[in-house]
Write a protein that binds this DNA or RNA. Structure first.
Lengths: 137, 137
DNA sequence: TGACTGTATTCCTATATAGGAATATAGAAT
DNA sequence: ATTCTATATTCCTATATAGGAATACAGTCA
């Protein structure tokens, strides 16, 4: 039963928050840290959990690991992600996370958010460092 | 986060099968046993788990405990149950369960399946015994 | 090269969960 | 009162999970 895999991934708050964020597009771990305000180990472990169950895909990009929802999704996963997106809209925690993400997206010059994977021009610098450089210029 | 409760209930095969069946209407434990072909303890424990998380409601009716999905369901539960019903249609295990349930429903003279809670007239006899009496007459 | 950054992994502990065997319980039948 | 039936509970064990501290590692920068 494939559904079990999906619901196992869904049944932890941190993982649900991560998935909710990834519904908006690929993200590196540092952004997840920044938004969730959770220890790095914790996030990293949950990402491992999700990876092991094919709930996310990873791509290394310089120092950063870019996590994303699978490109090819079965009918069941698709349906449940849609459902999740539906449900998270009414929960303050998820809404707050999305707002924090929006703030990051806005200040990012280029990046995963518009164009898929981090483009080559960004590879040399951390998204967060770029952001702070921007902010202070 | 209320969603977690829901997904915790969803992340075990036996519970998922139970919920899928209850989507068709209230059921007593013996019918669940009959359909799932799982040991009584196992079913009973999962029902406890579901009860503790307000995922099912119970009503005693003579010897039988009638389990049902909650009458009042929050938006999130409603959405997810709908999603579940969607997904189970493509999985042979769930389809098989529903067929087994349909067989039981067909041979039951009266009962929970059409009228909600077991009517008074049935209280004196086990649904299954009624069924076998019918079959052998 | 060495230092730094982002992320993963290892080791540990606490808690939750699944499941079986045996037993208890509540209500009905005799 | 005793027996029977449906279901729940207790006790036990094995495994999974969550999370933190410390450490490892891979890639980049100077």
């Amino acid at each position: 039963m494939d559904l079990i895999r999906i619901y196992q991934c869904f049944c932890d708050p941190t993982r649900l928050r991560i998935l909710n964020l990834l519904l908006q597009g690929p993200l590196c771990v540092c952004h997840l840290q920044d938004i969730l305000k959770e220890p790095q180990v914790k996030i990293s472990k949950h990402l491992l959990y999700l990876r092991e169950r094919d709930m996310v895909e990873v791509e290394r990009c310089g120092n950063w690991m870019i996590y994303a929802l699978p490109v090819k999704r079965g009918k069941e996963l698709e349906t449940n992600l849609k459902c999740l997106q539906d449900c998270t809209q009414s929960d303050p925690v998820f809404v707050k996370d999305l707002k924090a993400l929006a703030r990051i997206v806005k200040r990012e010059p280029v990046g995963v958010f518009n164009n898929g994977p981090y483009p080559a021009t960004v590879k040399a610098r951390s998204p967060l460092r770029i952001a702070s450089q921007r902010a202070s210029s």
